[in-house]
Design a binder for these strands. Structure first.
Length: 123
DNA sequence: TGCATGACTCGAG
DNA sequence: CCTCGAGCCATGC
């Protein structure tokens, strides 16, 4: 049975609350997975495509929590400025930079990617 | 319930 | 082009 939520308290421990959240995560992962090789999408764009406008930060959180060695193409997600978002240490991930260049995504001298050229445009 | 934390974004200056 | 500040919103303590 569904374990009635005591109305007041609904800690993330609530079974349906957790499943609902997991579904949002799945949608985000699926969207990221659909970004074609050679192009990039911003956190906000991924959120919108996943049907979650204004949730760019959630996309970032999800990617941050990805297990090392994940098959997901997390490197195709950059910020709206076309840059690799700084990590906790304040510097952009060299790994992400490498992966992108390896699949043909070019970086300008200022560290930005020309979104008009490499930005993902879902059909 | 309140308050701080961000792989965010956008508009000003 | 860059730095800031404000707005945004799920999380976690």
């Amino acid at each position: 049975m569904k374990r009635a939520r005591t109305a007041s308290r609904d800690p993330r421990g609530s079974t349906d609350a957790r499943t609902a959240r997991d579904e949002l995560v799945q949608r985000i992962l699926a969207t990221v997975d659909s970004i074609p090789k050679g192009s990039v999408a911003s956190y906000g764009q991924v959120a919108r495509e996943a049907g979650l406008p204004r949730h760019a930060r959630l996309v970032g959180r999800v990617l941050r929590e990805l297990p090392t060695g994940s098959k997901l193409a997390w490197h195709r997600v950059v910020n709206a400025a076309g840059r690799i978002s700084p990590r906790a240490d304040g510097t952009p991930s060299p790994e992400q930079h490498r992966r992108l260049e390896r699949e043909g995504v070019h970086f300008e001298p200022n560290g930005r990617i020309d979104l008009a050229r490499f930005g993902w445009r879902p059909k």
